Simulated scan of single mutants.
Amino acid sequence: MSQLRVGAAQRVFIYPTRDVFFACLYPLKGVLYFVAHPFLYPLVRARLLPAILLSTFVLMNLFFFTYLPQVAFLALFHRTGSAWVNGTFLVLGEGAAITAILFECFLVDESQVDIFDAVLVHKGYEDLVKQYRPVSEDSLNNPVLRLGKPTKSSVYGPFSLRQIVEFVVLLPLSFVPYVGIPLFLLLTGYRAGPLQHWRYFKLRDFDRKQRNAFAKTRRWQYTWYGAIYLALQLIPVLSMFFLMTAAASSALWAADLETQRRRQEASVFEAARYTDNPEGNAV
């Protein structure tokens, strides 16, 4: 009986908590992976400077024109200190949203696709990428140079009006002292997390029903992953850099999911073969 209880506790609490913790680490792994692999640098070099300049310009204007009025408004609901803290996060969130809309939709998505595909190729999953673009042989020893032009429509993350509406609707959570910002990140991360794997879902040829089922079984993992991803977007000036590293992090997660899936399929195949031919497997 005690063994059954331990097994139930592992399935209900320990394993899900472990999986959520590992999911939270992927955005940070993406940063480290990006920094440690120079073959990714050319994909962002030409766009990083204008991204930083745009982010700086947007934040300077927001802090100059809107910060004090928003802090004064928040002070109606907060104690003295928390109004300044929540006001800062509110302006940073507004800046990240405006910069993403101005920059991501026009210039970043193609680079994110290339980063995602290059990481998958580097991890040995070029068979997935080849469905959407040619991948040359390994003689170049550079995953980025191995990538050909996409032969099908390739989008890293689709434009989501629903996500933008939820972002605006949930902004008033910043009125809640101390816990408002974490709640805002979690609730918006609920939507943002699965969207970071849109490219992976496309490479797997998932339809809408399959995407929803896949995300549902990993709902808390995607929610916390999305929350950490959005928190990095709030870091001044570097939000566009973390937008790029997010593509690396989502690809690393996709590669790990592929490894697990293929191992499970191999195990099922071996078990079925042993069952179908027990004499042939006997020693």
Results as ranks from 00 to 15, higher is better:
Val144Ser: 05
Leu145Gln: 15
Leu147Glu: 05
Gly148Asp: 09
Lys149Gly: 14
Pro150Glu: 11
Thr151Cys: 01
Lys152Asn: 11
Ser153Lys: 15
Ser154Pro: 00
Val155Cys: 06
Val155Ile: 14
Tyr156Asn: 08
Gly157Asp: 12
Gly157Met: 10
Pro158Gly: 03
Pro158Asp: 04
Pro158Ala: 00
Pro158Met: 01
Phe159Gly: 09
Phe159Pro: 02
Gln163Leu: 15
Ile164Leu: 13
Ile164Gly: 02
Ile164Thr: 12
Val168Ala: 04
Leu170Val: 02
Leu171Phe: 13
Pro172Met: 01
Leu173Ile: 04
Leu173Arg: 08
Ser174Gln: 10
Phe175Asn: 05
Tyr178Leu: 08
Val179Pro: 03
Val179Glu: 08
Ile181Asp: 09
Ile181Ser: 06
Pro182Gln: 06
Phe184Ile: 07
Leu185His: 01
Leu185Ala: 04
Leu186Asn: 07
Leu186Gln: 01
Leu187Arg: 14
Leu187Glu: 08
Thr188Val: 05
Arg191Trp: 05
Arg191Lys: 07
Arg191His: 04
Ala192Val: 03
Ala192Phe: 05
Pro194Gln: 02
Leu195Glu: 15
Trp198Cys: 02
Trp198Tyr: 10
Arg199Tyr: 09
Tyr200Ile: 02
Tyr200Arg: 03
Phe201Leu: 09
Phe201Met: 14
Lys202Cys: 13
Asp205Leu: 13
Asp205Ala: 11
Asp205Gln: 13
Asp205His: 08
Arg208Ile: 14
Arg208Val: 13
Arg208Ser: 12
Gln210His: 05
Arg211Thr: 14
Asn212His: 15
Ala213Lys: 13
Phe214His: 12
Arg219Cys: 13
Arg219Ala: 09
Trp220Gly: 03
Trp220Tyr: 13
Trp220Ala: 03
Gly226Arg: 00
Ala227Arg: 07
Ala227Ile: 06
Ile228Arg: 04
Gln233Ala: 09
Leu234Tyr: 11
Leu234Gly: 03
Ile235Phe: 14
Val237Pro: 00
Ser239Gln: 05
Ser239Ile: 06
Met240Tyr: 13
Phe241Asn: 04
Leu243Gln: 08
Met244Lys: 00
Ala247His: 05
Ala248Cys: 15
Ser249His: 04
Ala251Ile: 02
Trp253Leu: 05
Asp256Pro: 00
Leu257Pro: 00
Glu258Asn: 05
Glu258Lys: 10
Thr259Ala: 15
Thr259Glu: 15
Thr259Tyr: 15
Arg261His: 13
Arg262Tyr: 12
Arg262Val: 12
Arg262Lys: 09
Arg263Asn: 13
